[in-house]
Computed example of a mutant assay.
Amino acid sequence: MPVMKTAAVRAATAGLFAGLTLSSALVAPAAHAAQGDLDCTGAFNIDITPPLTPQRLTSTAHATGLFANCLSLNGRYDNIQSGVIDAYATVSANGLPANICQLLLTFKSNNPAVNTFTWSPNAGISHYTWRISTDPAQGVVLQAHISSGTLAGDTGTAVPVLADPNPDCALNGLKSLTVDLGAFNFD
């Protein structure tokens, strides 16, 4: 029964997001395994300090958000229903001339000690490295590689990713990015 429910959730989510028009829409590659450890929906916000501008092409990013509606296709993580996202990275604007608001960006963190998924109810913590690229020339991807804790050894991949920059981006630079995840699959 969970397999059918997850397939229905994926199909409904894909249909819902296909009809939306946002500032930037990307489709990341689908997860590899047929029987996944965990599938969740979710959303997060990335705060960028100081803001990216045509004169400042690299900065620091802090992502916070939530996973919801988590399902485990293979039953290994049936105890997980949701999770809290907390992560840090370096963000760089790609392309010349740099049009920050067109979201040709790369976020990258190689320090799992500062990145956590806190799973509920009482399902532990995951530490991970992560990378987001919204630049087709760099390869469009949103991935988290779990290095320790719950889901250790898994890679999480988002499908699809919809991103909106702060509304005043053209005037004040890119200082935040809101990301809606249709599905985040851990395999």
Results as ranks from 00 to 15, higher is better:
Arg131Gly: 07
Ser120Pro: 04
Leu181Met: 10
Ser82Gly: 08
Ser126Thr: 15
Thr155His: 06
Asn111Met: 07
Ile80Lys: 03
Leu73Phe: 07
Lys108Ile: 11
Gly153Gln: 15
Pro167Arg: 03
Asn79Ser: 10
Pro97Ser: 11
Ala98Asn: 04
Ser82Leu: 11
Gly139Val: 00
Val114His: 02
Gly153Asp: 14
Thr58Ile: 07
Ile132Asp: 06
Leu174Phe: 07
Leu66Thr: 13
Asn110Met: 14
Phe117Arg: 05
Gln81Tyr: 01
Ala183Val: 09
Ala170Asp: 04
Trp130Cys: 08
Leu96Phe: 10
Ile80Asn: 00
Pro136Arg: 12
Val141Pro: 05
Asn94Ala: 09
Asn172Tyr: 09
Arg56Phe: 09
Gly124Lys: 01
Thr116Val: 14
Gln138Cys: 05
Ile100Met: 09
Tyr128Val: 08
Gly182Asp: 11
Leu96Glu: 09
Ile85Phe: 06
Asp47Glu: 13
Ala61Pro: 08
Gln143Arg: 12
Ala163Val: 10
Gly149Arg: 04
Gly182Thr: 08
Gly65His: 04
Pro50Trp: 10
Thr49Tyr: 11
Val161Pro: 06
His127Asp: 11
Ile100Arg: 01
Ala87Val: 12
Val179Thr: 07
Pro167Val: 03
Ala170Met: 05
Ser147Val: 13
Ile46Gln: 03
Pro50Gly: 12
Thr118Phe: 05
Pro54Arg: 12
Gly139Ser: 03
Gln143Asp: 14
Gly83Thr: 05
Arg56Ser: 10
Ala63Arg: 01
Leu103Pro: 06
Leu73Pro: 02
Val159Trp: 00
Gly139Ala: 05
Asn45Ser: 14
Arg56Lys: 15
Thr134Glu: 02
Ile146Gln: 06
Cys101Tyr: 02
Thr64Trp: 01
Ile132Thr: 05
Asp86Gly: 12
Thr90Asp: 05
Val141Trp: 09
Gly75Lys: 00
Gly75Trp: 03
Asn115Gly: 08
Ala87Asn: 08
Thr157Ser: 02
Gly83Glu: 00
Ala123Met: 11
Val161Asp: 02
Pro167His: 04
Leu73Asp: 07
Lys175Val: 07
Thr106Ala: 13
Phe117Cys: 06
Gln143Glu: 07
Gly173Pro: 02
Pro51Trp: 13
Pro136Cys: 10
Thr178Cys: 08
Leu103Gln: 09
Val179Ser: 05
Thr150Val: 00
Arg76Phe: 08
Thr58Ser: 15
Leu52Glu: 04
Lys175Glu: 12
Ala137Tyr: 08
Thr116Asp: 13
Gln138Thr: 01
Asp135Ile: 08
Ile80Cys: 02
Ala113Ser: 15
Asn79Asp: 11
Thr90Cys: 02
Ser59Met: 10
Asp78Thr: 14
Asp164Met: 15
Thr116Trp: 06
Leu181Pro: 09
Leu162Val: 04
Leu181Phe: 00
Gly124Pro: 09
Ala63Cys: 12
Gly124Thr: 11
Ile146Arg: 04
Ala163Cys: 07
Leu104Pro: 00
Leu73Thr: 01
Val114Asn: 03
Gly139Arg: 11
